[in-house]
């Protein structure tokens, strides 16, 4: 693929956010993960244009930015649903019933892990231990943690998200 990607045109305010982050680090390159977070916060995913902008800003090859994005599981290269439900399926959660949580989400929303509902509202992902094992089973939706779940509470949570009664943090 040789199509030329031009760097994303961020607003002056957004550019300032990137610049002040870079200033915190003794070496520019070290600001990469933080810059990627800013890019993802702005667009909800990281586009090739954003990677190009960050590469120029930090004076590193775009290919380096690309491999780093690929290495970390939280960087998204495609937009997810409005609510990205990430259910922990590691041991303590499995012992406490995470499969019932996943089953409830699958049957209620009609999607499997890795999929997004057609209306773009929900995505479902299985994730590894989120360090909330004392409140298992649990899930993270966007940035908010929901703990001590079971099938009923999960169904209620989905309904509340749909109706707007339950909000989640995005930053």
């Amino acid at each position: 693929m040789t199509t030329k990607v031009s760097p994303k045109a961020y607003t002056a305010e957004q550019q300032e956010r990137f610049a002040s982050t870079v200033a915190k680090y003794p070496h520019k390159k070290a600001a990469l993960l933080t810059c990627l977070w800013i890019a993802q916060e702005i667009d909800s995913y990281i586009s090739l244009e954003a990677m190009k902008y960050i590469a120029l800003l930090l004076e590193i090859p775009t290919s380096h930015v690309y491999t780093v994005v690929g290495f970390y599981s939280m960087y998204l290269t495609q937009p997810k649903g409005k609510f990205h439900i990430q259910v922990c399926h590691t041991l303590s959660c499995e012992l406490a019933g995470s499969e019932a949580v996943i089953e409830t989400i699958q049957s209620t929303l009609g999607i499997k892990p890795g999929e997004t509902t057609e209306d773009g509202q929900f995505s479902l992902t299985r994730v590894e231990c989120l360090a909330a094992c004392g409140e298992a089973p649990m899930c993270q939706i966007n940035r908010s943690y929901f703990v001590n779940l079971n099938a009923d509470k999960t169904a209620q949570l989905l309904a509340d998200l749909q109706s707007g009664a339950q909000e989640v943090a995005n930053a």
Partner: peptide, 26 residues
Amino acid sequence: VIHRGAGAYICGEETALLESLEGKRG
């Protein structure tokens, strides 16, 4: 400086952590 990781268990290993802090794969 607070540096936020991005999802990789291995970055808890101290030298992977340093690599990650330097803006690389862990």
